[in-house]
């Protein structure tokens, strides 16, 4: 009765396999971030009082957020300089315009492996101490190993304020043109 045994074996195997898949899915879901963690992922930033040329560090989803209100010289430079790995695009496109001012607002974690780059006011650039990556005042990468400039967090402009975690039309455009990546 080999056939009947084969059938029993296959039936047992199939049911055990289903159970194993179910258990794996449950295990995967247990490792997921909790709903409360996901829900706490929105932060409102008021940048109206930010001083020019001085780096401010805020926090969003536990990550540092760099806010650097651009000085006139920085803006002039950003209008001319191309983004290092997006030919045809100028650095100014990565700056966030609120009112008449331009802001560099990025996640303050190196796109290489996630250390916090340090701001150097005298040279107006960022240096990551972990592996030597460098970024300019618009957070565009100027020295490898980082593959791209600092990522811009999802944002929505709300008057003078900025809601981090929500994707506004300006942010969506940045992602579509490949000037930043979803974080």
């Amino acid at each position: 009765m080999a056939d009947r045994r084969d059938f029993m074996g296959m039936a047992l195997g199939a049911f055990t396999g289903l159970g194993a898949l179910g258990a794996l899915y449950a295990a995967k879901r247990t490792w997921d971030p909790l709903p409360s963690v996901k829900a706490a992922g929105f932060t409102t930033l008021d940048v109206s009082k930010a001083p020019e040329g001085v780096l401010i560090t805020e926090m969003w989803r536990g990550k540092p957020i760099f806010v650097l209100k651009q000085t006139k010289e920085m803006v002039e430079k950003a209008k001319k300089k191309e983004i290092s790995n997006a030919k045809g695009h100028k650095e100014i496109e990565r700056l966030i315009k609120i009112g008449d001012s331009y802001f560099m607002i990025t996640v303050g974690l190196c796109t290489h492996l996630g250390c916090i780059p340090g701001y150097r006011p005298e040279t107006q650039d960022f240096l990551c101490a972990c592996h030597g990556g460098m970024y300019d005042s618009t957070a565009d990468v100027t020295k490898a190993p980082p593959p791209r400039g600092l990522d811009i967090p999802p944002y929505k402009i709300d008057g003078n304020k900025l809601v981090l975690g929500e994707e506004g039309p300006e942010y969506k455009k940045l992602v579509e043109t490949g000037l930043t990546q979803r974080v």
Partner: peptide, 16 residues
Amino acid sequence: TGLVEWIRGDYVPSQA
């Protein structure tokens, strides 16, 4: 990044 957040159980290393 989804995989990284899944491993951490949060956006950054935290309680989870």
